[in-house]
Design a binder for these strands. Structure first.
Lengths: 337, 337
DNA sequence: TTGTATGCGTTATCAG
DNA sequence: CTGATAACGCATACAA
């Protein structure tokens, strides 16, 4: 990234004008084939690399698409990121990854940086309480919400029917005869946390049962929280006979803690996990999520919006949302009692 | 991102010159405090967002740092990406993630895109056989190699002593009395694949034993390969009593296959895994890697280089390399025979 | 303390 | 078929 070669250099070398060089490299048919080839040869020889910043300055648009997520170590977001990166690459865009760890300041910085780079689009899984500035910035961008849904943000959303997802897992356990069912979930400051807890509760009320609130633990969606919460659940007072882990990293934490405490699954405890990580071991009963489908739909939608926005800046489809369904995948971690 | 607000708009609104606005927003002390505040107020009101492309065009440098890796679903790279993103954010840079899936064409596109964006630096875990063009592009950039080491690339490298890592795991099994030890590893087209296999072999020769070549399986470093390879190892002919999984995703695949085949660990089979994923379950004997340390060292180094390159474009330290040591973490997946 | 002028690398318009 | 020129948004050297 030092003394970069520019169109000017090539032009001087060939005694041609800058515009001719630019057109030749863009394969403008108005330029004679011979010239085009000479230009390309010299460009290659000199190691010319276009300057996308300069290009963006004229068009007002870049080939950048931002993905802002709380946590890349979550298998779920990892899969999403991979799928989106693929889609972007195929469409000639580059994916810029921002990781917030759910910190609103970090989130604001990431969003601002992306807008400064004139990113053509943004995909965001927002933190529980984004700053006013973040919301304002997002509202003026081509943006899509992923998974989590922030009330104050009037932009399209792609996510999962979380309520139904957790409902199905919980109902499965109730059907197997479990009553003392524990719940490890994200705090209800998150839209996903609220929906998932609602699904848990509905499974009980539908079955005419009391919701076992003493077995419900809400916190940060990280393995450490789940491990700690499960330990307290297992150690203090009456034990649950089953647990619903309502999050990918919560499932990891639960399994870690169970292993550490020597809890046999499903002999001592039935477990319903969240997501389809290949390492759920052994053979977990889990709530399967169509991660790839979501990423594809979301990516395609964003690309379409970006292309649309080009001619008419009509801000349509502002409230659009797409909900994907989950499916319960039976495994060996749940048993009848 | 539509009709963006520029310095000019603010200038017109306040009847000031563009340069005054620019200086005020940059907190230039030469501008009176009163003016600075008025300018900032209007900037906020209008929703001004700086144009990093234009800025980069003048400075020749952007706030982008590229990370090019084969596979984000690998826990190992996920942790690396997270740590690097953090470091970048703290230093005012943004991390641009490129995923190659070890495809040389995709890799070339990613690298080119990053150079076009005038990324200030690049961190790359290169594919087995990068294109000539990729190598040429990289050699003209501020670049650091991560983990894998490509011979044709004369740039600094940060990685692990892979040979020692696998040697320690293998020696551990030999010490426990195992002789029929299987090896699941990446193909030797990768520098890591070569080093790891060498470590496996040295453990045997040092102990005065034959290398059990019939138990060695090399392929793509993905779970699917490991699962398939282990199945053949377990099904055809004499069975190994232990396995070394020489890669993160290979460990995942091995454990999956073992579960599927009903192989009890460590009763039927001892296992040494690679890396410290929190879901190695149960309690794997594993080769622990200082992932975070590597990322930090690599990130700091790159940032230093970027800052240095600014004034003097001396291309020093071209061949520098830093090797990190691993440690064998004993678990419950290996036993004496 | 503020304003003017210039140029960064491209592309688009207009002219030859 | 090719060239000259302007403009994109910003930073900075130089004036005032």
């Amino acid at each position: 990234m030092s003394g970069a070669v520019t169109l000017k250099h090539i032009a001087e070398r060939l005694n041609l004008s800058i515009s001719t060089i630019g057109r030749a490299l863009a394969d403008d048919p108005q330029i004679s084939l011979a010239t085009r080839e000479r230009v390309k040869a010299v460009a290659g020889e000199l190691g010319y690399v276009a300057h996308s910043g300069a290009r963006a300055m004229r068009s007002g648009r870049s080939t950048l698409i931002g993905l802002i997520i709380p946590d890349i170590q979550n298998e779920f977001y990892g899969t999403l990121a991979k799928a989106l990166a693929e889609i972007c690459a195929n469409a000639g865009f580059q994916l810029v990854l921002g990781i917030t760890e759910d910190d609103p300041e970090s989130e604001e910085r990431q969003v601002r940086g992306l807008l400064e780079a004139r990113a053509s689009g943004l995909v965001i899984t927002a933190s529980p309480r984004p700053t006013r500035e973040t919301l304002s910035l997002l509202s003026r961008s081509t943006c899509v919400q992923l998974i989590r849904r922030t009330g104050q943000l009037e932009v399209p959303w792609f996510g999962i029917d979380e309520e139904a997802a957790i409902h199905s897992g919980t109902a499965h356990l109730i059907e197997l005869g479990h009553r003392r069912i524990g719940y490890l979930g994200a705090s209800t400051t998150l839209s996903t946390g609220r929906s998932r807890l609602a699904g848990f509760e509905r499974a009980f009320t539908e079955a005419g049962l009391e919701v076992p609130r003493e077995f419900v633990r809400l916190g940060r969606p990280r393995a450490a929280f789940a491990a700690e919460a499960f330990e307290s659940l297992w150690t203090d007072g009456e034990r649950p006979t089953a647990i619903v882990a309502a999050g990918a990293r919560l499932t990891v934490g639960l399994l870690q803690a169970a292993t550490r405490l020597g809890v046999a699954i499903p002999a001592d405890l039935s477990v319903v996990g969240y997501g389809d990580a290949p390492w759920w071991n052994p053979n977990l009963t889990t709530i399967s999520l169509p991660v790839r489908d979501i990423a594809l739909a979301c990516g395609e939608f964003l690309l379409r919006r970006i292309r649309e926005t080009e001619p008419s800046s009509a801000r349509s489809a502002a409230g659009q949302s797409v909900t994907f369904a989950s499916a319960l995948t039976p495994g060996a971690s749940t048993r009848r009692v």
